[in-house]
Amino acid sequence: MSNIDKRNHLDETPFSYRVNKDKTIFLEYYGRQVKILRGKEAEKFLRKMNEAENEKDVQLLMAKITGNFKRGNEREAKGKGKDNNTK
């Protein structure tokens, strides 16, 4: 697993989750909601969480499920878009 988290960001435990009474799962990144899981997807997530051996595995699982939403180019892309049309 050392090749996956080269900068040790997952050691900070940025991910967390909450389970609602209707088995809806809310995944959070530094306290901000980033994904909601329901139904079979939620059941599969909970099953994998129970199989995780340590906290780093738990963090990696949540990072993979939330997707690759942090690519490092957020600042660059900030000024681009529909509001930046010049004529």
Rank of each mutant, 00 (worst) to 15 (best):
S2D: 06
S2W: 08
S2C: 10
S2K: 07
N3F: 15
I4K: 12
I4S: 12
D5N: 12
D5K: 04
K6V: 04
R7M: 05
N8T: 04
N8G: 04
L10S: 03
D11G: 10
D11R: 07
D11Y: 06
E12Y: 13
T13W: 09
S16K: 09
S16H: 05
S16A: 15
Y17H: 12
V19Q: 02
V19N: 04
V19Y: 05
V19R: 03
N20H: 11
N20F: 10
N20C: 05
N20V: 09
N20L: 08
K21H: 08
D22I: 04
D22E: 01
D22F: 03
K23E: 10
T24Q: 11
T24K: 07
I25K: 00
F26V: 03
F26W: 14
L27A: 01
L27Q: 09
E28K: 00
Y29V: 13
Y30N: 15
Y30W: 10
G31T: 06
R32W: 01
Q33C: 14
Q33E: 15
V34E: 02
V34L: 10
K35R: 13
K35Y: 08
I36N: 08
I36M: 05
I36Y: 03
I36W: 07
I36A: 02
R38F: 07
R38H: 11
R38K: 12
G39K: 15
G39C: 11
G39E: 11
G39V: 08
K40G: 15
E41H: 10
E41W: 13
A42R: 01
E43F: 13
E43S: 15
E43L: 13
E43N: 10
F45E: 04
F45C: 09
L46Y: 08
R47H: 12
R47I: 00
K48E: 13
M49H: 00
N50H: 04
E51K: 12
A52M: 04
A52W: 05
A52Q: 11
A52K: 01
E53A: 09
E55M: 15
E55A: 15
E55L: 15
K56G: 02
D57F: 06
D57V: 03
V58I: 12
Q59T: 14
Q59W: 09
L60Q: 05
L61A: 06
M62V: 00
M62S: 14
M62A: 13
M62W: 01
I65F: 10
I65H: 06
I65Y: 11
I65K: 15
I65R: 07
I65N: 02
G67N: 05
G67W: 08
G67E: 10
G67Q: 05
N68Y: 12
F69G: 04
F69Y: 11
K70S: 14
K70L: 11
R71K: 13
G72I: 01
G72D: 08
N73V: 09
N73Y: 07
N73F: 09
E74Q: 15
R75Y: 11
A77E: 01
A77K: 12
A77T: 02
K78L: 04
K78D: 03
K78S: 14
G79T: 10
K80I: 05
G81W: 02
G81E: 01
G81Y: 00
K82F: 12
K82N: 15
K82E: 04
K82Y: 08
K82M: 14
D83L: 11
D83C: 04
N84F: 09
N84Q: 01
N85K: 02
N85P: 07
K87S: 02
K87W: 06
K87N: 15
